[in-house]
């Protein structure tokens, strides 16, 4: 029996080594790795973080998901407050915990932080997204934790399998997508951002004629995100950093349907938030013609209008 068990174990290990080894090998020695580092949207954290590190205080730091990436014109804020701005927004699904940990160490007395997290943001977000960012920017590993080892292994496995699929697709198609700010299709890539970190790649692109309806789940809750924001606010207050929250931009067509749930989320915010809140959700509801491709994403014009509103509310609050 022992001989059979040994034989089985050996074969099983060999088969696992061959199959999983192929996937791990493709991940580690990805021939497109260098290309991805130059072009991946996730790799944009390298440039954003570099700016965050290099800006002297006082500075204004914007943090949120893609609604800030699309919907803020940092130049206008810079002109209005005569302070340098860095827009750290990339994607909501990194979660508030990760995003706030990302900026915390680089904040000093006199700095201002504007948070603009989406209604669907959660504290922990998607672990896989963070692991992918870690591939381009190893420092990102300092900004997240995981619930248990299975979650970490599972997320890592998914990242590797996705990378393997992408590699195969590229080999089969024999082409690698190129991106450019000047073309009319590209959106998410490393070079898609201006110096301040605002997304500009969509400025040339035609907007969607119909903005797809978003449906915020009835069970959506900002509770876990509020806990993170409160902790962040308390910590920052001690070192003299001002922290504000402003609502995400939202398309009018979807707002009509999601009004109830947004009101519920707003109540949560107002009830539990320790930090000052700029405006109300309706202030950031935009007609669909000012939206680019989804409810949270504004066009260039939309971004300018929204930024002006944020500036006005910020000035009003400071006075």
């Amino acid at each position: 029996m022992n001989k059979k068990v040994q034989q089985f174990s050996l074969k099983a290990c060999l088969l696992l080594f061959l199959t999983l080894g192929s996937i791990e090998g493709a991940y580690r020695f990805d021939p497109f790795g260098k290309h991805d580092l130059k072009t991946s949207y996730k790799a944009a954290i390298i440039d954003k973080y570099k700016r965050l590190e290099n800006l002297k205080s006082p500075k204004i730091v914007l943090i949120a998901g893609s609604n800030f990436a699309y919907g803020i014109n940092s130049q206008l804020i810079e002109q209005a407050f005569q302070q340098p701005v860095v827009n750290m927004a990339l994607h909501y699904d990194y979660g508030t915990d990760f995003m706030l940990k990302q900026i915390s160490p680089q904040l000093h007395t006199g700095d201002t932080v504007i948070m603009g997290f989406e209604y669907i943001v959660e504290s922990k977000g998607n672990l896989g997204e963070k692991i992918q960012m870690m591939k381009y920017f190893p420092k990102a590993k300092e900004w997240f934790t995981y619930d248990n080892i299975f979650q970490f292994i599972g997320a890592n496995s998914l990242v590797r399998v996705s990378a393997f699929k992408l590699l195969l697709e590229r080999i089969l198609k024999q082409e690698v997508t190129t991106f450019s700010v000047s073309d009319t299709t590209s959106i998410f890539f490393r070079g898609a951002l201006n110096e301040s970190g605002d997304l500009i790649s969509h400025h040339n692109n035609p907007r969607l004629k119909v903005i797809p309806r978003a449906v915020i789940n009835d069970k959506a809750s900002l509770d876990s995100a509020i806990v993170d924001m409160n902790a962040f606010y308390s910590k920052m207050k001690k070192i003299g950093v001002k922290v504000y929250y402003t609502y995400p931009s939202y398309a009018e067509s979807s707002y009509q349907f999601d009004k109830k749930i947004i009101e519920k989320l707003d109540k949560q915010l107002k009830k539990h938030a320790l930090f000052p809140i700029l405006g109300k959700p309706e202030d950031f509801v935009f007609v669909d013609s000012l939206c680019q491709d989804m409810v949270y994403h504004l066009t260039k014009n939309g971004a300018d209008i929204r930024t002006q509103k944020v500036i006005e509310l910020l000035k009003k609050n400071d006075n």
């Binding site: 199959t19 192929s22 496995s157 996705s162």
Partner: peptide, 19 residues
């Protein structure tokens, strides 16, 4: 046999929906 096992497992990873 080994070729079949290998291809089957790789197809599982390539075609599977793992989100």
């Amino acid at each position: 046999r080994w070729a079949v096992y290998y291809v089957f497992i790789m197809l599982f990873f390539i075609l599977g929906v793992f989100d």
